[in-house]
Design a protein around this nucleic acid. Sequence first.
DNA 1: GGTTAATTTGAATATTCATTCAAGTAGAAG
DNA 2: CTTCTACTTGAATGAATATTCAAATTAACC
Lengths: 195, 195
Amino acid sequence: MARVQFDREQVIQDCTQLFWQQGFSGASMQKVVQATGLKPGSLYLAFGSKEGLYQAALEHYARQSQATLSQALENAPSVGEGICQQLLRMIEAAEKADYCSCFLVKSQLELAASGGDLHRRVCAYITEIEDLYVEYLQRDYPQDQARQYATSLMMHVFGIRVYGYLERDRDRLLAAVKSGLPWLPWDACEQEALQ
Amino acid sequence: MARVQFDREQVIQDCTQLFWQQGFSGASMQKVVQATGLKPGSLYLAFGSKEGLYQAALEHYARQSQATLSQALENAPSVGEGICQQLLRMIEAAEKADYCSCFLVKSQLELAASGGDLHRRVCAYITEIEDLYVEYLQRDYPQDQARQYATSLMMHVFGIRVYGYLERDRDRLLAAVKSGLPWLPWDACEQEALQ
DNA sequence: GGTTAATTTGAATATTCATTCAAGTAGAAG
DNA sequence: CTTCTACTTGAATGAATATTCAAATTAACC
């Protein structure tokens, strides 16, 4: 089936799921071959190396995360309520059996020691997300406060992403986030959810 | 030098550092051999497998963390001030060039997908630390509040451990932690530090 | 329909991996 | 001093690793 190029988007999606679950070292190229259904040669022609593939997966995940976030904040009744929704969604996600934290957070911790190009990209993507929060928060707050709130937000997101693996009382995690970010319109958001 | 057994404690310490930096998949047994100076045969006789070695490293790290925490909270002017000290120490640690987050957090994220014995142990160690916080907080607060505060605390610790990798303004991270945990005696703790 | 060029194929490569074990060594016991 | 036993040694094992490449395939073009 030459000249009928494989669905690049689909392959990257499959890779993203695999790397997200198993990490860079944990996911062998053999597993990638299985997950994508492609042969090694095709993968290497298209992506150059395992690192190239991981890079593509990382970018796919980051772009998707940013898009989801922007969309949610645009469509919400207010930026604050949109953020609440996102946080609630993250806490809910941690309940699922196949919970997998966040691909960027996992990559950050796995790749930091290498100090390579991949790690630099991970940092950049995370920073972009923080900056996105700043941008939206500036609609309601002065710049300095927006920056500070964004940092608090990111720290809480990271906390949720790790704490989520512990099978403990979800309500306590929720209460922790609420009390840690008291400036968010939690009540308004919960009334929305009930409707 | 038969019958002169190697220094088990030292070997476990070396392994802890290696696994902490590079992770389970990232640290090959060859690297362990280099780091410890032992030959494969000795390592396998003493620890059974790579997993056995990782387990020993994990336990060493967890026991040390718990001991450090207990000691700090016992010796501090108050439990709250001791906790502040610990959090400040974590934020400071993130400044160092060879910053490596927390071995338990990194293990949690790397091993969760495997669902194996190692992961169960990681969860147990983390839970023990949270319970340790509860125990000390109960000196100053009723049980329910102590539990809730401990959860908030753990979430912030996780947040610091991940956010620490980003080379951003340390003061903003500190401010985020302070505002997220407003019930802690930050002022008293900082005056202690100045003396 | 034949030629070309892009794409896929999948076996083969060399390296690295975790693990094993027969042989060697040195302290303890007699 | 000899024997015994516990420990260390390190080369060897086979499986898994990332990557390559010559051959096969097929769509597009003339």
